[in-house]
Design a protein around this nucleic acid. Structure first.
Lengths: 213, 213
DNA sequence: CACGGGTGGATTGTTCATAATATTGTCGAA
DNA sequence: TTCGACAATATTATGAACAATCCACCCGTG
């Protein structure tokens, strides 16, 4: 998870990336033979990959009908964000307990960059930094169980997140929330960190519910 | 999830049950050929099953070395319980928002049975009712995402939970906590339900940490 | 007796062929 | 024309065989 062995990229990773990159769109059928050819793999391997990704919630398998990219409804995206809310809250609390001065500096640095990205209105960069900040907090928390689940859930809602980041004024709203979170962690205040993170994601939930279908 | 189609039990389900029942013990190697014979399945199917269960965290696969039942350390059990803490807290809060009078009655009934089980010192029954109560709360919450994760995590720690339930006085400690949770849900007080549930699981974490290695 | 290397058995990883199943298109009758 | 049964096709599910890899044991040597 942190820095696993540099072994070759597995087929599952490649197919997952393809889904995340949008090479396969939601509800698209994944015909085994086609995927085989596309990735130069055997059918058995592809089948195993589908089962694996089904466990991650990225594809769904219908008996005798094959696999397809799972489409995630807005309701489900809200549920997922609610779960992330409490898990990232836990993560933030743990991070506040364990943060070192170096890590604190790193957090401040990221937030500083976010602030700048907002002023120059660079949404892509802001989104990138947002992901980096959350990831850094997870790393500081050192809580593998929650980190793994958060990442898995995050993969399921990439599409929704993407659209969300493009809502006008979204960055301006979330920036102060991020500042609050980092401030609490740096101050080593677990409870404040947890509530700050939860409020941040609650606002994401709200935005999702208000957004397009 | 709730009452899916009555289709035949899949191989994955059967192997998962075998692990949960203890037919396979932690760290036991799962040789493909053996499992094939034992369940009368083909190797390809067994392989797929292993990949699937690996995704659920029940088995681990070592490249070119096969699969084995994953052993969960006490530290990991604590982490898992921490995650369950916040997720079941979310679940309890949602349940408090949505509970109907009939459901409230059912909750009270379960707690009543728990109380009785404690007086007659029937630990098995208490453990059973405990699971039933938590499941009922999840059902009331109607939050599939969190329910699925909670159940997956619960499967990983069955062994630890089993030992925990046997600690002397454990039931006497957790009974009032359960009463508090149900009271909050019945009173339709989400925040109280959430904190009550979190405190309950926090005590489980404590007990785990204090328990045997 | 300790150590290194090689060899044989066991087990996994991969490929291909075959059977089972669902879907789609076609034809005929009302 | 429209509906239903039936056949053709596409796709998945299963099974068997082959190749690659790892592991433990054994033997020879210093």
């Amino acid at each position: 998870m942190t820095a696993g062995s540099p072994q070759e990229e597995t087929l599952t990773d490649r197919v997952r990336s393809a889904i995340l990159e949008g090479d396969f769109v939601p509800n698209q059928r994944l015909v085994e033979a086609d995927v085989c050819e596309q990735f130069g793999a055997a059918r058995a391997a592809v089948r195993e990959t589908f089962k694996e990704l089904a466990g991650e919630g990225l594809v769904e398998i219908l008996r005798n009908k094959g696999a397809r990219v799972r489409a995630i409804s807005r309701e489900e995206a809200v549920e997922i964000t609610e779960v992330r809310m409490v898990l990232e809250g836990l993560s933030a609390a743990k991070a506040a307990e364990r943060v070192t001065p170096e890590q604190a500096a790193r957090l401040r640095e990221i937030v500083g960059d976010m602030r700048e990205a907002v002023t120059v209105n660079d949404l892509d960069r802001y989104s990138e930094l947002n992901a980096a900040l959350h990831a850094e907090i997870r790393a500081i928390a050192g809580h593998r169980t929650s980190a793994a689940i958060i990442e898995r859930l995050g993969a399921q809602v990439v599409r929704h997140k993407f659209r969300l980041a493009r809502q006008p004024g979204r960055a301006a709203i979330s920036l102060p929330q991020h500042e609050l979170i980092v401030a609490a962690i740096v101050a080593r205040d677990p409870e404040a960190a947890q509530t700050a993170m939860q409020q941040h994601l609650r606002s994401v939930t709200k935005a999702l519910e208000a957004g397009p279908t």
